[in-house]
């Protein structure tokens, strides 16, 4: 890392751990061992440019319908629960939801095909694990309460997701920016609690928004600022952002808008549960009307393309 950057680092801790339910998540902050001849500022600049290529922006014509929103929340609950069961990193869960939203932004699923949403969530989590994890479990490890899918069916869905997303799976997430923004903003604060709180805020808002509508850098900045201070005005947000060399690449309007969204959700959560205002709902179970019925097997028929499946028998 360049000397000018090393000297400007505000948080001098090398490593901090996010403890969640007894597990440790290693999180290593920017340090000289990551020198790749590209300064952190340049690295973040490259990432922000790539966000534009990846097409993170609100598309008013692409709004999820009510049933998709409900199914999406169930899918996210299942993803978070399975992440904990299989010991995946939080980033893997987030990446899988990004794939999920990206897929649904390009293809629609009929409302009667709840099984297709379940299958999609398995495929997205499996693909995210293959991108992020060192040890990837077999497809049979991805278990649902209400359906049972054969390996070859999940494989077909993986291929459909890949072709729909044009194999563009190296998608940027807010976690690519967190150490940078926390380091820039935190000044005297030790980063560990800030990082943990920022993570929680990101996961809380994930359920409420289509991740394709917002740039990951914007989410990362806004969540970090809320974690540090919940009373910032628009001017204060702009002032904080001006400390980032790459601030011209970030729209302060978008950051402030997302900051307010997080604030609103934070307050709603605080009202609904005084003990854990922001909780990663990995323990919550997938609930659906079909959950009480016996497991049903889905198979693609041979004459169908991989984009369609036969629904389970009624």
């Amino acid at each position: 890392m360049d000397d000018d950057l090393s000297s400007s680092l505000l948080c001098h801790e090398n490593e901090t751990c996010l403890k969640e339910g007894g597990e440790e998540l290693e999180y290593q902050f920017a340090g000289s061992q990551h020198d790749c001849g590209v300064s952190e500022d340049e690295r973040v600049g490259i990432l922000i440019e790539r966000e534009i290529v990846l097409g993170f922006k609100r598309d008013e014509s692409m709004v999820f319908g009510d049933w998709v929103k409900r199914a999406r929340v169930e899918a996210i609950n299942w993803i978070l629960k399975t992440r904990a069961t299989l010991g995946f990193r939080f980033e893997t869960a987030y990446l899988s939801v990004t794939y999920f939203d990206r897929f649904l932004s390009r293809r629609s699923i009929d409302s009667e095909k709840s099984w297709a949403i379940r299958l999609l969530s398995i495929a997205c989590l499996s693909l995210a694990a293959k991108m992020e994890e060192c040890n990837v479990p077999g497809l049979s490890e991805f278990k649902l309460d209400d359906y049972s899918f054969e390996g070859k069916v999940i494989q077909k869905m993986e291929l459909l997701v890949l072709s729909t997303l044009e194999w563009e799976m190296g998608i940027i997430t807010p976690f690519d920016f967190l150490s940078y923004f926390i380091t820039k903003f935190c000044k005297e604060s030790p980063p560990s609690p800030i990082f943990y709180k920022t993570m929680q805020l990101i996961f809380t808002t994930m359920k409420e928004v289509n991740l394709m509508d917002h740039k990951p850098s914007v989410i990362a900045v806004a969540a970090t600022l809320v974690a540090m201070d919940q009373q910032l005005t628009r001017d204060a947000v702009e002032l904080k952002m001006s400390s980032i060399p790459q601030h011209r690449l970030l729209e302060s309007k978008d950051v402030f808008e997302y900051y307010n969204l997080i604030q609103r959700l934070y307050e709603e959560n605080t009202k609904s549960d005084t003990h854990t205002p922001i909780e990663m709902t990995e323990s919550s179970r997938v609930t659906s009307s079909a959950a009480m019925t016996k497991r049903r097997r889905l198979t693609f028929s041979d004459d169908e393309g991989s984009s369609h499946g036969k629904g389970p028998p009624g």
Partner: peptide
């Protein structure tokens, strides 16, 4: 069938993209 798309293929293609 139990592996699905191999991780090496997935990473190689997505990185080359």
């Amino acid at each position: 069938d139990q592996e699905g798309v191999p991780p090496t293929t997935l990473r190689e293609v997505s990185i080359l993209r």
